[in-house]
């Protein structure tokens, strides 16, 4: 059963605090991890998660129940991410520096991998893959992340990105091809 069914949407629409805290417990982790994966920056992911749930609280009356609540929240998160990236590149154009330090592998990867060599190897692979994913065009980046990392269905992705299922399939296919090309050099180097 979908966990969202535990939430009383009507009470949520009336601003019920208890229902909202239930919503946080069910969906905040998903949004936070999605944004961490997309942004590769802890602080920005936290701030944007807060922004997403403020929007959810303010606009929940617009939720018509035509899709799953989680899909609707994903959609808000993706729109916030796009907006954030646009603002960031605008700021960058005006001379703000975006620190390269923010692009790093999560600490938990290191926590779970035994041995310093394995840690470095995994971190390197992880960084190479994520750098390649981040270089993908925005739509391919989002479709691939939602499909491969978030494990969403193509149907859900099409609702979130407001595209047809065929378009989503094509984006994922092109993302795969692009990633294979981008990672070719890295893979060959490490295979030897």
């Amino acid at each position: 059963m979908d966990q969202t069914e535990h939430i009383d949407i009507e009470r949520l629409k009336k601003g019920d605090h208890h229902e909202f805290s239930l919503l946080i417990d069910l969906h905040a982790e998903m949004v936070y991890n999605l944004l961490r994966g997309l942004l590769r920056n802890e602080t920005e992911a936290e701030d944007l998660t807060q922004d997403v749930f403020t929007t959810v609280f303010l606009t929940i009356h617009q939720f018509k129940g035509e899709s799953k609540l989680s899909t609707w929240i994903y959609r808000i998160a993706i729109n916030k991410f796009k907006e954030h990236v646009r603002n960031r590149s605008r700021k960058k154009r005006f001379g703000f520096m975006f620190s390269l330090d923010s692009v790093k592998a999560p600490e938990s990867l290191e926590d779970k991998t035994p041995g310093p060599t394995a840690v470095l190897e995994n971190k390197e692979r992880y960084d190479a893959l994520h750098a390649a994913i981040n270089e993908l065009p925005e739509k391919q980046h989002l479709a691939f992340t939602l499909f491969k990392i978030e494990g969403l269905s193509q149907q859900e992705i099409s609702t979130i990105l407001n595209l047809s299922i065929t378009a989503v399939e094509s984006l994922i296919f092109r993302a795969r091809k692009n990633l294979q090309q981008k990672l070719k050099a890295y893979y060959e180097e490490n295979e030897m």
């Binding site: 946080i24 936070y32 961490r36 994966g37 936290e46 749930f53 938990s108 779970k112």
Partner: peptide, 30 residues
């Protein structure tokens, strides 16, 4: 290779919601 790295990354990247962020989120309605 790409799938292997992705799978390991996906499993290791998921993190629980930090407590301070959860508190910040719970403050939103107020």
């Amino acid at each position: 290779w790409m799938n292997e790295v992705l799978e390991s990354a996906v499993n290791s990247e998921k993190r629980p919601l930090p407590e301070q962020l959860r508190n910040r989120l719970l403050e939103i309605p107020k």
